[in-house]
Amino acid sequence: MSEPSRPRLAVWKFASCDGCQLSLLDCEDELLSVAEAIDIAYFPEASSAMGEGPYELSLVEGSITTAHDAERIREVRARSRHLVTIGACATAGGIQALRNFADVDDFVAAVYASPEYIATLATSTPISAHVPVDFELRGCPINKLQLLEVLSAFLAGRRPAIAAHSVCIECKRRGNVCVMVQGTPCLGPVTHAGCGALCPAYRRGCYGCYGPMETPQTAALAREWQSLGVAPREIRHAFRSFNAAAEAFREESEAHDDQAP
């Protein structure tokens, strides 16, 4: 038997902060194992050697905010056998999807000295709005252990063991005391697991970094937030963060949209 060739991996960046692809470099102890198992052919963040495609696996970070990127993601898809999106930008549009709720030209005019040089789309959209995606790994940023699980599953040809239930389940497994029952508004009950219930472990309410869980009952949660004294404006802001454009969070934020700011 000949040595099986290592699958070729590419890591792509679209509109994003680089935090999720840095999770791969952040693997440290496991990074050598990753490099042994996978040929990291294209990863500009890590290496100036840029191998040509096609690639067995592409990890895509970032959202689509320009016409150029909308074209580029199609090329990436065409050169990738499997395409996995990583992080809130790639899976939900990211924090930059706040533009979807306003007029982007106003932002451009406010931020740039010469707005005429800026060519941008009116919206920030997830990769799945443009090309078929094989798996979406959530989080802002992603959890490196979950990234390793996705890579290991890909190599073994199995489904990644990534749960889509609420943060509450991992919070309770961890033995945390529920902060919401103690009076702190928390998005955990409607948020996708993956972080290990990081914020509640430090006595903070969940910020919803992993986006909506599988069956997010956002209206029921928002009612309880109101009974904890949270103003509609604050509820809107809570749902409008890194996953503002994720369907369930967008709808809930819009339900609290007609209130005075």
Partner: peptide
């Protein structure tokens, strides 16, 4: 079930689950 990157080790882990999850 989890397998590692090299395909040499695997483990089966049992965790509390809930009848409220879709899985």
């Amino acid at each position: 079930d989890h397998s590692d990157l090299s395909g040499t080790s695997a483990e089966r882990v049992r965790q509390w689950d809930s009848c409220f999850t879709l899985d």
